[in-house]
Computed example of a mutant assay.
Amino acid sequence: MEEKRNKKKHCTAIVLSAGQGKRMGAPIQKQYIEIQGRPIIYYSLHVFEESNIIDDMILVVGHGQEDYVYDEIVRKYGFSKVRAIVPGGKERYDSVWNGLKIIRNGALCAKAGDGYVFIHDGARPFVDEVILERAYDTVSRHRACVAGMPSKDTVKIVDEDGYAVNTPERKYVWNVQTPQVFETKLITEAYSRMMRKESIQVTDDAMAVELEMQVPVKLFEGSYMNIKITTPEDLETARSFLKKRSLVKVNSTL
């Protein structure tokens, strides 16, 4: 175990917090809505801060929110692993690229460029150390991997008029989550190639690696609790999860 720990590669988490969250219908961005007295983004940052896997973090936030995030989140809660706070872009891939450029330009330690990048949505507060450990083990063997869980529901492929045209076998259908984890050089080169194109049509980071680098992406188990908070209903689910977690902690100390 000690030998394995000494050989561990540098791991940087890029946490995306620049989304508008229009479906939430709240006056502030969803990642800053408080649950049990703390903003949603606090919970994933806390996990990364305490993690033995993650060495440093880059926060990608909305334009003009850098000072607010530093004062009200990073400094307030003592997140010492946050090395940079950068503005996001128009699309998700623009925000990821802004984070990757921090590593590419050498703003972090020298080891960061030869390590792994964990790209995570700030609106997913229930990532945990077990997921991070699975991610590290998988990326170290496969170069590129994505958290996800097998779909609980039957999925239909439809045509433009909404008619079902195909029903894939459920055992082959996974719901993709974050973190999405890659060799730093691999994901940086994939994005570098992609961002030079006039038209970009990717919905996650794995697609960039698949299309630009022709490298297969391995899925590993995340958690059914690792939800992305997008709607008011998700917010209620998150509150329920946190309440159950608090009860477990209380009972474990009795």
Rank of each mutant, 00 (worst) to 15 (best):
D128K: 06
Y43T: 01
Y77D: 12
A26C: 12
E212Y: 08
K152P: 03
S223G: 06
K243M: 09
S80F: 08
Y224N: 03
V86A: 08
T231G: 02
V47H: 03
R193M: 11
L219Q: 13
R83L: 01
V217R: 05
G122V: 06
R5L: 12
I119M: 04
V250E: 15
I35K: 04
R239P: 09
T253F: 11
A13G: 10
D205F: 05
E236N: 12
M194P: 10
Q180I: 08
T154I: 14
S240D: 12
H142W: 12
G115L: 04
L247T: 02
G37P: 12
T203W: 01
N166W: 15
V146S: 13
E66C: 01
E2I: 14
R141S: 11
C145D: 07
K101S: 09
V173D: 06
L59R: 03
T203N: 12
L247Y: 01
G62Y: 10
V74F: 03
K228V: 14
E129N: 15
G113A: 12
I227R: 05
V250M: 14
G113Y: 02
E91F: 14
V155N: 01
I131S: 06
A206G: 08
R170G: 02
S17M: 13
G19Q: 04
G64P: 03
I131C: 03
A26K: 14
P216F: 04
D128Q: 03
E91V: 07
K218Q: 13
V202S: 04
R38F: 04
Q65L: 14
K218G: 01
I157P: 00
A26G: 08
M57A: 10
A112W: 00
N166D: 14
I73Q: 02
S44K: 11
I200N: 06
W174F: 14
I58W: 04
K228I: 11
T12L: 06
